[in-house]
Write a protein that binds this DNA or RNA. Structure first.
Lengths: 144, 144
DNA sequence: CCGTATCCCCGAGGATACTG
DNA sequence: CAGTATCCTCGGGGATACGG
């Protein structure tokens, strides 16, 4: 194989090479919808549970808890409990978490910068030539 | 210069403000597992369907087709059919697709660079913690 | 306020078989 | 080879209720 088209993410699954799997698993986690939003929302400093819940529209309490636990386990956020009444829990990016902020925000900003172009592309695509009914000679068609 | 904790991704859901929704939808799509892998795999140039299938380990034919259609609809990849026998179809990043490459690869490389640290964090986390007093960073107590 | 524990549903996505 | 069409499963994730 030429040096060009190699696998970027995976390496070959050697008999005992769990490293590739690890990369995939981690990428799946941080590429996760809610993880991305939580990381991005914690950009400017610590937030408590209820603030996160309010700022991340549409997340359920369950998913917020679960995802935060995952990120904590990954060493990306810290969880700080203040034994006050009522209880208060702060979440904050760790050092490593803040390094993740850069690629994550790059993705977010790319999306914001290109959303009009993408919506336009949708309209173009959806207006594509309708597939002909029945077999027509020499026509390469597409389903809708 | 900080309105500190503003929503980075969403704006408030005005009665008719689909723009925010659009951003979320797009981010969900490109943050998608298979989309990320396809974009990354197309980094160095066009690939045909079967090559993509082979290079992206674990993807089913169905998901490859579906995800490629989505990316094509987004204007991120082009689909080129060569009317040969047997048929041959090439997929290639568009201009816009290549601009996406940068943030995506940043994420991929971050993951590769930090996977050992994350695995280490897992081991630390999974070692049962001892309860502590006062506002302390880290876990106060956790159910198992 | 900050969770955890249950129930339950729906749809992402795999497996398989079939066509141009 | 490059899809499309079905079927079917399995677990992500919402809704709800309760506990510290």
């Amino acid at each position: 194989m030429s040096p060009k088209h190699t696998e970027v993410i995976d390496c070959r699954p050697g008999p005992d090479d769990p490293g590739c799997r690890a990369t995939r698993e981690i990428l799946d986690r941080i590429g996760d919808k809610w993880s991305l939003y939580i990381i991005a929302t914690l950009e400017h400093g610590p937030l408590r549970f209820s603030e996160l819940k309010r700022l991340i529209e549409g997340i359920s309490q369950r998913m917020l808890t679960l995802t935060l636990r995952g990120l904590e386990r990954d060493g990306l956020v810290t969880r700080t409990v203040y034994p006050s009444v009522p209880p208060r829990v702060d979440y904050e990016l760790t050092q490593m978490g803040r390094t993740l902020l850069e690629p994550v925000m790059a993705l977010v900003h790319w999306t914001i910068a290109h959303k009009e172009a993408i919506v336009a592309a949708h309209e173009r695509f959806d207006a594509a030539p309708a597939p002909e009914q029945g077999p027509v000679k020499g026509v390469i068609y597409r389903q809708r």
